[in-house]
C-alpha cells in the first residue's frame, strides 16, 4: 500500500513539475509575443500615420493636377487660336504684298505709257487683292 501511495504521489509530483515547467515556458513565450505585438503595433501605427499623410498628399496633388490640366488645356486652346489667327494674318500679309506688288508694277507700267502691261499686272494680282480684302473683313 505504501508503495502504491508513494508511486501515486511521485507520479502526481512529477506531473505537477512538468505542468509548471510548461507553464513557465508558455509564460515566457507569452511575454515575448506580447512584446512583439507591442512592436508591431507601433510600426503599424507609424505606417498608418504615414499612409494617412500620403493619402492627403494624393488628394491635394490630384486636385492640383486637375486644376493645372484645365489651365494647360485652356492655354493650348488659346495657343491654337492664336496660331490659327497668325496663320490667317500671314495669308493676308502675303496677299497684300502680292497685291501691292502688282499695283506698283501697274503704276510703273503706266509711267512709261504701257497701259496693256498695267492692266495685265492688275489682272494678275486681282485674286490676291480680293482675298486680302475678304480675309481682312
Amino acid at each position: 500500500m505504501f508503495v502504491v501511495l508513494a508511486a501515486a504521489l511521485g507520479y502526481l509530483v512529477g506531473n505537477e513539475v512538468q505542468a509548471n515547467t510548461q507553464f513557465d515556458r508558455a509564460h515566457r513565450s507569452l511575454d515575448i509575443t506580447r512584446a512583439r505585438i507591442d512592436g508591431v503595433d507601433g510600426q503599424l501605427a507609424t505606417v498608418r500615420s504615414q499612409l494617412t499623410d500620403l493619402q492627403g498628399q494624393v488628394t491635394q496633388d490630384s486636385a492640383t493636377l486637375a486644376a493645372d490640366t484645365t489651365k494647360l488645356n485652356g492655354a493650348k486652346v488659346a495657343l491654337a487660336n492664336s496660331q490659327a489667327n497668325n496663320s490667317r494674318q500671314s495669308t493676308v500679309i502675303s496677299n497684300l504684298h502680292t497685291c501691292l506688288g502688282g499695283v506698283e508694277e501697274a503704276l510703273n507700267a503706266l509711267s512709261v505709257g504701257d497701259q496693256s502691261h498695267a492692266v495685265a499686272a492688275l489682272d494678275a494680282v486681282a485674286a490676291s487683292c480680293e482675298s486680302a480684302v475678304a480675309s481682312d473683313a
Binding site: 504521489l9 506531473n15 505537477e16 510548461q22 507553464f23
Partner: peptide
C-alpha cells in the same frame, strides 16, 4: 492535495 495541486497546475498551464 497532490491531485488538486496537479490539476491547478495543469489548469494554469
Amino acid at each position: 492535495t497532490a491531485v488538486a495541486t496537479d490539476l491547478q497546475a495543469h489548469a494554469r498551464n
